[in-house]
Each structure stands twice: as structure tokens, then as C-alpha cells.
Simulated assay, not measured.
Amino acid sequence: MRRHAKRYLMLVALLAASTLIVACDKRNAYVPPPAPKVTVAKPLRKSVVDYLEATGNTQAMQSVNLPARVEGYLQAIKFQDGQHVKKDQLLFVIQQDQYKAKVKEAQASIDSYKATLTQAEIEYNRAKKLYAEKAGPDTEVVKWQTTRDSAIASLESARAQLDIAKLNLSYTMITAPFDGRMGRHQVDVGNLVGGGGQQTLLSTIIQDDPLYVYFTLNERELLRIIKAHENKHDDPKGKAALEMGLSNTTSYNYKGTLDYTDLGVDPQTGTLLMRGVFPNPKRDLLPGLFVRLRAPVETRDALLLPEAAVGVAQVGHYVLVVGDKNIVEQRPVSVGTVVDGMRIIDKGLDGSERVIVNGIQRARAGGEVTPEEAAPGAPAAAKP
């Protein structure tokens, strides 16, 4: 009897322990988390303009040093440093007294030689008449002819000296050679300038409207332009359009044209030097700025995705595509330029794929996701 009771108690204990173990197993069982939610959208297909992009630097269209071309004391400065001036506006005045005196001296020499020439002409004509009448020797004719010719030469020399004197006098007044902006003055009033046979730099003037922009293209980009235009019959007088943006903006607010291309590709760098010209009526652009440039090459249909939906790995660019069974695939793609915040996809997609545009960091290649379609229209901007 005791033996049966003992077996019974052992059986009850075993059943209780089994129940406890089963209960613990149910409480600690692993339950996989739900697939992460992501937003998917098909690439946007639209007509886009392909641009050729480059970087460059602005440069003044003209930059001229203004030296003192004659010696004298600087008498006046007629502008403010940094001022915009007009062509032929007076900028500097050098003491003029000695140069005005040189003009008067040259003019007096002319008057003297004119009088000498007049007398020589009279005596020469009289000597010829007397010689013709056999009333005078031929030596008198030769004498007065020589005197007349000498007076003519002296008169021409005096006139040349007058021209030089007037030219030197004009150099005492330095004027602006074109509309532009002045630099700072290098010499103060009262200083002797142009002395010692050397020119003294007074200031510099630049033409800042319009401005030049210099940039380079490599061979691949140059061949791309040639190919894009090989079937076009462009107006040979027309100039290619350029757009320019500053380094602190993403837009291209300045419009200009291609002005010059170098004679050939530099064999050492494999690049071609080019130049654009941009109006600058507000003078808000300065020479020496680093700028971004782009030029339209061709218009074509393309696929676009939000730029943040395109990842970059060691092998290149990629996007995350959701398949039929909601499994994520990492798809390599070739990309183009950015258009209105959207990245052009040149290769790797046909437009029917569901691309993850939101929740990219929650998805991984080979994993399952719960996709939600983006709102109708353009794909939404990608978010983590």
C-alpha cells in the first residue's frame, strides 16, 4: 500500500514539473519581429536636360595698370578708392607747369622757323630771277635753295617737338580707359612720380561688367559634346548657353554664353581651356571667385529617383528594390546629374521596379520588408 502511495506521489510530482516546464517554454519562446515598414515608389519618368558640369574662376574682362608716364609732383586724385568710373573720367593730375612751358617753347620755335622759311623763299625766288636774267650768279640760287630746304626741315622738326610737348602735357592728366572699377591709389598727393626714368604705378582699373569665367573640360566630356552635336545644324554665329552658380548656393542664377575655346587639348593634362562671359550689371560678382558651371547638352527621357534613395558602395551606386515576395535586392545602377533634387538613373532600372524611398536604413539586402506605396506623383524624398 505504501509502495502504491509512493508511486502515486512521484507521478503527481512528475506531472507538475512537466506542466511547469511547458509553461516556461511557452513564456520564453522566440517570436520573430515583424518585417520593417518601408515606402516604395517606381522611378519617375520625364523629359530632362542633360547638363555638362564644370568648375571655374571669374576674371575681369580687362585689367589695366595706370602708371605715371611723365615726371612731376602728383597734384590731385579725382576718385575714391573702389569707385566705379566712366570712360575718359579724370583720375589723376600731375603738375603741368613745365609741360605747358614746353608746349609754348615748341610753338615759338615753329613761329621762328616759319619766318626763316618765308625769308628763304623770297631770296630763293629772287636769286632764280636774277640768274635767269644773267644778272646774278648761280651760287646765290644754290645758297638760298639750301637755306629754304633747311628751314623746311627745321619747321617739321619744330612741329614734331610741339606734338611731343602736347603729348607729354596730356600725360599729366590720367583718365579712365574704359568704364570700370578703380583699385586703391598707390601714391599720395605731393609725391614725385615718374622720376628716375621709371614709371610709377598710380592705381589699377578693372572692367567687371561683364566678367570672364575660365574653366576646363576633359577629353571625355569634350567628346560627349561633339557626339551630342554631330547631327545638329547649329547656327555658326550662335553661342552656346552657360549657367553659373556660386559656391554657397545650389542654384544656377547667372546666365551667360561660351565666348572662347583654346586652340587644342593640352596633352599634359588632357583638358581644353574654355571661357564664358557673364553680364554683371549689379557688380555683385568679383574677379577670382570659385564658381560652378553647367551647359545644356541634350534633352532626353530619363528615369529619376530622390537623390537620397541612391546609395554608394565600393562597387559604385545602388538602390534597394523590393521584389514580388517583399524581399529586398540591392541593385547596382549608373547615375547621371541631379535635376530638381532628383537623381537621373542611366542604367540598372527599367522603370517598373519598386524602389525603397523611405526607411532605407531599416531595410537590408536579402531581408523581408513591409512595403507601402508612396503617394501618387513623384517619389517621396528618402528618409532614414
Rank of each mutant, 00 (worst) to 15 (best):
V277H: 03
G256N: 08
L246K: 10
V315L: 15
D266W: 05
V355L: 02
K255I: 10
G264M: 05
L303M: 00
L242C: 06
T249P: 01
L320M: 09
D259H: 14
A240R: 09
R300C: 00
P236V: 01
A240Y: 00
Y252N: 12
A308I: 01
G311D: 05
A309S: 09
V339G: 03
V339H: 14
E243T: 13
R283A: 13
L273E: 03
G348S: 08
V333R: 04
V321Y: 05
D284H: 10
Y318T: 15
L258N: 06
L242S: 04
A240L: 06
R300P: 01
D301R: 03
N326D: 15
V291R: 09
G348E: 10
N326W: 10
S352A: 13
L286I: 10
G238R: 14
T271E: 14
G351H: 07
L285W: 07
K255P: 12
K282N: 15
S251Q: 07
V333A: 01
P236Q: 12
D350T: 15
V335E: 02
D350H: 04
G264V: 00
E329V: 04
D301G: 02
P332W: 07
A309Y: 00
R283D: 13
D324W: 00
G316F: 13
T299C: 05
G288H: 06
V338S: 07
V335A: 05
G288C: 09
K255W: 06
D284F: 02
V338F: 00
F290G: 03
N358H: 02
R354E: 08
V357M: 03
G264K: 13
G270E: 11
D346A: 02
D340I: 09
D284L: 11
V291I: 14
Y260W: 14
P236D: 13
D350M: 03
P279L: 10
V315C: 03
R343S: 00
L293Q: 02
P236A: 13
L263A: 01
N248M: 13
R292C: 01
V310F: 05
T337M: 11
L286F: 14
E298S: 08
G256D: 11
V339D: 12
P281A: 10
D350F: 00
S352M: 12
N248I: 12
R343V: 01
V297R: 06
N253M: 10
L242K: 05
I344W: 03
N280D: 01
P281G: 09
R354G: 04
V339Y: 14
G256I: 07
G351E: 09
T261R: 12
E329H: 15
K282I: 08
